[in-house]
Amino acid sequence: MSAFWSRFRQNRGAVIGLVILAIVIICAIAAPFLFPRSPWSMVQRPFLPPFEMEGLPLGTDALGRDVLSGLFHGARVSLLVGLVSTVVALAIGIPIGALAGYYGGLVDDALMRFTEFFQTIPSFALAIVLLAIFQPTLAYVILAIAIVSWPPVARLVRGEVLSLRNREFVEAATLSGQSNLRIILRQVLPNALPPIIVLASLMVATAILLESSLSFLGLGDPNVMSWGYMIGAARTVLRTAWWLSFIPGVAILLTVLSLNLIGEGLNDALNPRLRKRTS
């Protein structure tokens, strides 16, 4: 563990990413305490520019709502959607990939054709269609994002399992009478974990972007304040009050960037042999 941390620390970008992410997480946790009022409530006149009035450092939006409060509460939504949808996507993708890779043959063919079925549809279009069918609540937004993002997980896990399946320690486990399920869970998957962790960190970033895009189009949950919704609501006033789109945009950029940096750092730390290129 300490060796892992010292390798992770060698990548300066990853440490910066971790710091940014920590700030975003603190904002998300602090939101209800710092801004106990609903972010939807009107507090001042509309279009108040940033740094003009004490107590409203980032000004107000087109309906006079506190932008800073929206930003803090939006962090909650973005992180929640990012994390939960990634967990759901992993829960779908890992079993499918593991079964396909371990059993091979017909099972593999069937599961991979099923996976390809999802991969051939543009993911964003599929997410829009799913939300058009479902109710636009936060739970369904998360589900829709998970449904469009699990196929790469399944393919990655399948590839890892394929290469691990014929290792001697897996054969030894077979010979010692362990059941297939046990071998997959105890022998194969723990060794496939590093690339999955890296992929997952990048998937959180993608999910945040997807949620923002959906909210921008007005397909998000209308009852929660999210960064995508803030940009979407401000797009009509882009020329007169550009900061209303710019500020949540920067928040999305920084969060996604931090997750990508962390992903890169994790990759370096978990696969020390592949780290040659950053010298």
Binding site: R167, E168, F169, E171, A172, A173, L175, S176, G177, Q178, S179, R182, R186, Q187, P190, N191
Partner: peptide, 26 residues
């Protein structure tokens, strides 16, 4: 069976104790 490669025949993420007891427990 005793395998050829002492490096790939033991699961790198399991302790020796686990490796030796897994079969008996199974």
């Amino acid at each position: 069976m005793v395998f050829q490669d002492p490096y790939s025949s033991l699961n790198p993420r399991s302790r020796i104790g686990t490796i030796l007891t897994e079969g008996l427990i199974a």
